[in-house]
Simulated scan of single mutants.
Amino acid sequence: MMTLSQISARMGILAATIVLSATLLFVAPQAHAANNSSYYKAELAQPTTAKPKLLRSVYVKCEGSNCRAPMASTAPKNMCISIVREFGAVTAFTAGERVFTAEEVAACNSDNAKAIAKN
């Protein structure tokens, strides 16, 4: 037979486990989403007031000349070109830890100009 103190201790452990589980259930996804929301970062040559747009399966949000988007299953260059097409020329672009060189940024802007000329 269990004593009252043994039951009390087990109830305390159960309550602590429930609180910890609930915390991980709600906090961990939010932390991941916060980190994930700015995988792509672009600096526009000209500020924009455009609303967030769905590009390559993720929403790209721009405030002034800063654009941000979560990771997508596309090559960084393709995302850069898509941002240029939708929001205008970029002066800087990063994908996670990868910072585009001046030549890569110029290629994003140039590839967009070539695509527009073809249409």
Results as ranks from 00 to 15, higher is better:
A50D: 15
K41F: 12
I18H: 00
A92W: 06
N35I: 05
V27Q: 01
A42F: 06
C80W: 02
R10A: 13
M71L: 07
S110R: 11
E97D: 13
K41D: 06
I83R: 01
S21V: 08
S5C: 01
A42Y: 03
N112I: 00
A50Y: 02
P29W: 03
A95Q: 06
L14C: 09
E97C: 02
I116R: 08
A115E: 09
G64V: 06
L4C: 11
A95W: 07
M71C: 01
Q46I: 08
I116M: 09
A113I: 12
L25G: 03
T91P: 01
P47Q: 05
P70R: 05
L25S: 10
V99S: 11
A89D: 13
A34L: 13
I83C: 01
F87I: 03
E104L: 10
S57Q: 12
K114G: 00
S82T: 04
P76I: 11
A106E: 14
Y39D: 01
P52L: 05
T94A: 09
S110L: 13
T74D: 15
S57F: 06
E86R: 06
Y59A: 10
N78A: 14
K51V: 08
P47C: 05
V90D: 02
C80I: 01
T94C: 02
S82G: 09
V84F: 04
C80T: 01
V105E: 08
E86M: 02
Q46N: 15
G12L: 09
S37I: 00
A89N: 07
D111Q: 14
A42L: 04
Q30A: 14
N109A: 04
K114E: 13
I7D: 04
V58M: 06
T74K: 11
P70A: 08
N66K: 13
S73F: 15
R85L: 12
L44N: 08
E97A: 15
P29I: 01
I18L: 13
E86V: 01
T17A: 11
C80S: 08
I7H: 04
I7N: 06
I83E: 01
T48L: 07
A9I: 05
V105P: 05
C108S: 06
M11C: 10
E103T: 10
E103H: 07
L4E: 09
E104Y: 07
A33D: 12
S110C: 01
Y40H: 09
K118F: 05
A72T: 14
T17P: 00
M79Q: 10
A22T: 09
Y40Q: 06
S82K: 08
C62D: 05
A107D: 13
L14I: 14
A31V: 15
A117M: 01
K77G: 00
A92D: 13
T91M: 06
N78R: 11
A115C: 00
S21F: 15
N78I: 06
K118L: 09
N35A: 14
N66F: 10
S110P: 00
A95S: 12
A72M: 05
T74R: 08
E103I: 03
S37R: 11
F93R: 10
V90C: 04
G88E: 04
T91Y: 02
A95K: 07
D111R: 12
I116T: 09
M2C: 03
T17D: 02
A107W: 13
N119W: 07
T23D: 00
A9Q: 15
P29Q: 02
P52C: 05
A16K: 02
L54T: 05
R68T: 13
F26A: 07
T74P: 00
